[in-house]
């Protein structure tokens, strides 16, 4: 028996919005410790790694490990049926071929039950090596989304260069070029408005804008985003999901031909 309850169904809606651009289907691996998902996009350029800890749920029970393959378009259809203020409960029996979603309004005046067929998906979990990143940048997630959107107008790819002075985003193409520099913030009232750079060595890497823009669909989940970079390895873009967990995106760099 598996059962996971979230008082705020909006969190699950946002998680789904954050992954469905990159993935059409994915397996949710449920265990005693929580729900995990790891999947690459079709082109094997980016990877989504979602971790929702069991203790972050309002109720969580998982007697036996369970892998639930879901079509994310269909899951989105069902989650759209939940009101923003509804509580959501996901349930599945052991070895089930369906997952149930129950939405309850405040005061339980309205209770909706949906069942979705599960799929058997080929799972290939990649081994992601432990990496000490040369640069870690923490910045407001809305600022990052804005920069990715703005620079996408100039070219298909953008360079991210980090030194201890700051982080520079740049792009160039037919219409011209763009450069955005962000300095580390000296004093900020709100922690989520800060730009913080931890640098061991300067790094400059180039990435496809299209994927970065897809990652920014996670912006509503967190006020801050963390970018981790080292020379010649994939970028990690991480959004915390409150006390529940995190979503991490890995993106392979563009390399010299």
């Amino acid at each position: 028996m598996f059962e996971a309850r979230l008082v705020q169904s909006a969190i699950l809606k946002k998680v789904l919005e954050a992954i469905k651009d990159l993935l059409t289907e994915a397996t949710f691996d449920c265990s005693d410790s929580g729900i995990q998902l790891q999947a690459m996009d079709n082109a094997h350029v980016s990877l989504v790694s979602l971790n929702l800890r069991s203790d972050g749920f309002d109720k969580y029970r998982c007697d036996r490990n369970l892998s639930m393959g879901m079509n994310l378009g269909n899951m989105t259809k069902i989650m759209k049926c939940a009101g923003a203020e509804d509580t959501v409960t996901m349930k599945a029996q052991d070895n089930a071929d369906v997952v149930a979603f129950m939405f309850e309004s405040k005061n339980q005046e309205k209770v909706s039950d949906y069942e979705m067929k599960l799929m058997n998906l080929d799972q290939e979990h990649l081994g992601i090596p432990e990496t000490d990143y040369s640069c870690i940048v923490k910045m407001p997630s809305q600022e990052f989304a804005r920069i990715c959107r703005d620079l996408s107008q100039f070219g298909e790819s953008m360079a991210i260069s980090c030194t201890k002075e700051g982080v520079k985003f740049s792009s160039a193409g037919d219409i011209g070029s763009a450069n955005i520099k962000l300095a580390q913030t000296a004093n900020v009232d709100a922690e989520e408005e800060a730009v913080v750079i931890e640098m061991q060595e300067p790094v400059s890497l180039t990435f496809a804008c299209r994927y970065l823009n897809s990652f920014t669909k996670a912006t509503p989940l967190s006020a801050q985003v963390q970018l981790s970079m080292s020379a010649d390895v994939p970028l990690v873009v991480e959004y915390k999901i409150g006390e529940l967990g995190h979503i991490r995106y890995y993106l392979a760099p563009k390399i010299e031909d």
């Binding site: 350029v45 990877l47 081994g127 390895v233 994939p234 890995y250």
Partner: peptide, 14 residues
């Protein structure tokens, strides 16, 4: 010119 690398160049297959 740069080409897009694959994640499979960096991460181990199971």
């Amino acid at each position: 010119n740069r080409k897009q690398a694959s994640l499979l160049n960096f991460f181990k297959k199971p």
